[in-house]
Amino acid sequence: MDLVTEFTIFVLAAFVGFEVISKVPATLHTPLMSQTNAIHGIVMLGGLIVAGYAEGALELTLAFIAIAFGAINIVGGFMVTDRMLGMFSRKKPKPADGEKGS
């Protein structure tokens, strides 16, 4: 892919990112940050690619750590986000419990 095409994609993606986040309730700031955090774990793909042509101990080590770091970012990121959001989905009000609010 040539540089101009990549640059076009970059600019359009930037606008998508700006548009997709519109007035988020404060409650969701942390989970959403955590989710986008997991998404930038995509750099692990870079680790997989450089592992392909890594030669010598140093480069192999670099690739290994990069892949491990990326995997932590992805797996941990999505799982932690899921745990946070799980707390929200369980908000079934218990009608019989206690007296009703005014």
Partner: peptide, 22 residues
């Protein structure tokens, strides 16, 4: 950009811009 990988470019950029708004 350096790896010529479109997934990295798009996902990274979206996180960059949405993260800035956030």
């Amino acid at each position: 950009f350096s790896l010529d990988n479109v997934a990295l470019i798009v996902a990274g950029t979206i996180v960059g811009s949405s993260g800035t708004i956030l």
